[in-house]
Design a protein around this nucleic acid. Structure first.
Length: 469
RNA sequence: CGGGGUAUAGCGCAGCCCGGUAGCGCGGAAGUUUUGGGUACUUCAGGUCGCAGGUUCGAAUCCUGCUGCCCCGACCA
């Protein structure tokens, strides 16, 4: 009872000072959270990321290829999106938000309403007008652009949004890895000519390298088919994972390339080109573009043949939309020019699954620090014991004040259940507070990825994870 | 869109062949026990047996139709 009061005293100030919203993003007591963990593996899940996302209560399937994101999953999705957003902004792209529902007329302008086929979900509104749930937004962004931009002086321009899309896949599968509804970041660049568009393309190329590196992933750009959108310059960014969906081939040196630094000059076209040149200088191809002879010419020790997951795709497609949709600007020559465009996609919802494919073991998920739903899992092995309750309260409060995301397992559960839960949900760091070690003034900290454990004092643990002693 | 499965408690499954009014494990609630790697036991709650027809005295079970979901392939961020 007394210990319960200690815990409550942490929450009380949050409410009193109106900081509950902020605090609740940082701190969560498991006994008050909504994290429906399943002990058994759901039968429909085939691949490991899907299984773990269902088991940890990150997502719930509502229909084939359509998922609700539950709190734990939403935290990951939000963190992924935040990193994507930061790197888009850094590269000079500007955020907008376009609707999910679009008018069929817009798509008739580009000719794609007829071409797109059954993957497009077509809807009629109450006035019998033809609408659709957007599978992508080239038409709409072109419409927005042409409504306002008249001069080459307003170029280059790159607008992006992060929005839900729908593609009525014949056979959705692998959970959010290949769902019908999915969250997508799409950037669209506008330039006066092909050379300008190439510069915009390069910036996104560099931004993507940074984005995936920050997510803890090694993503390799590979020459790609241009697909239904068309165009002649395109790269897929592929991460290597043993459970990947397709076969990929690349030069081993890619695995040790350093990503571009945060302070790289995005306005320096030469610097951008140099990065792109470096990352396209070695062999890398998906199975569709694979050249067995060229690959075979490499030193066998440098040949990497692996499974890969596509997590990003960038295209240059020139005037494919600007011509039919009349997105033109006046150039310095006084004449009208159809703008050259490119589009650049990253799927945060797919990335959540891809990150699990790339980071898990028998016990569960292993999140990279950057997107872990919480940075620290705090396990009280004996709830109700005044010593462990007090130590946990101290750690919980100190880390919360320091802005560290902490999930506090204050449930009245067996230690074994708490260890299993912590390992399953994959928080990078665990602080284990039990009567045994606390008797010597210590708590155990465990690194989820390495499995390394250490016995240190409560104050040292606080400092270790970013709090002030 | 072809091919193959499957649908019974929140989850995983048995029962169906051979019709007689539903069961097991996990999870949930209450309790005893245990207290550093999903503890053991007791009790309890929880089910329109996917939907609609049909056969039958009687259907989870047999027949017909429909739908959802999953897997393989083709397709795809």
């Amino acid at each position: 009872m007394g210990s319960f009061g200690v815990i409550k005293s942490i929450r009380a100030p949050n409410v009193r000072f109106g900081a509950r919203h902020f605090q609740s993003l940082r701190l969560m007591r498991l006994s008050r959270y909504f994290m429906p963990i399943a002990r058994e593996t759901p039968k429909e899940a085939e691949i490991v990321s899907h299984r773990l996302m269902l088991r940890t209560g990150m997502i719930r399937q509502e229909a084939a290829g359509i998922y609700a994101w539950l709190p734990l999953g939403l935290r990951v999705l939000t963190k992924i999106s935040a990193i994507v957003r930061e790197e888009q902004n850094r590269a000079g792209a500007i955020e907008v938000l376009m609707p999910t529902i679009q008018s069929a007329d817009l798509w008739r302008e580009s000719g794609r309403y007829e071409d797109y086929g059954k993957e497009m979900l077509r809807i009629k509104d109450r006035h019998d007008r033809e609408m659709l749930y957007g599978p992508t937004n080239e038409e709409m962004i072109t419409e927005i652009f042409r409504a306002y931009v008249r001069s080459y002086k307003d170029l280059p321009l790159n607008l992006y949004h992060i929005q839900w899309k729908f593609r009525d896949e014949v056979r959705p599968r692998f959970g959010v890895m290949r769902s019908r509804e999915f969250l997508m970041k799409d950037a669209y660049s506008f330039d006066l000519d092909a050379a300008g568009s190439r510069r915009s393309y390069n910036k996104m190329f560099v931004a993507y390298l940074r984005t995936f590196a920050r997510l803890g992933l090694t993503a390799i750009p590979m020459v790609a088919d241009t697909g239904p959108i068309g165009g002649d310059l395109s790269h897929e960014f592929i991460i290597l994972a043993s459970t990947g969906e397709s076969e990929v081939y690349c030069h081993k040196d890619f695995l040790s390339f350093a990503p571009p630094p945060a302070d790289i000059a995005f306005d320096d076209a030469d610097a951008m080109q140099a990065v792109v040149n470096k990352w396209t200088s070695l062999y890398a191809a998906t199975s569709e573009k694979h050249d067995a002879a060229a690959f075979g010419a490499l030193d066998p020790a440098l040949q990497v043949s692996a499974r890969g997951i596509e997590v990003g795709h960038i295209f240059y497609f020139g005037t494919k939309y600007s011509l039919p949709m009349k997105a033109v600007v006046n150039g310095p020559d006084g004449k009208e020019h159809a703008v050259h465009m490119g589009s650049y996609g990253i799927g945060p919802s797919r990335l959540a699954a891809a990150l699990i494919e790339a980071g898990h073991d028998e016990a569960g998920i292993i999140w990279p620090d950057a997107v872990a739903p919480f940075a620290v899992g705090l396990a009280n092995l004996k709830v109700g014991d005044s010593a462990t309750d007090g130590a946990c309260a101290r750690i919980y409060s100190a880390l919360g004040k320091a802005g560290v995301d902490v999930l506090y397992d204050d449930r009245d559960e067996r230690p074994g259940a708490k260890f299993a839960t912590m390992d399953l949900i994959g928080l990078p760091n665990q602080v284990i507070v039990g009567p045994k070690s606390l008797g010597e003034g210590k708590v155990e900290i465990k690194n989820r990825r390495s499995g390394a454990r250490e016995l240190i004092s409560v104050e040292d643990a606080i400092v270790r994870f970013g709090g002030a002693a």
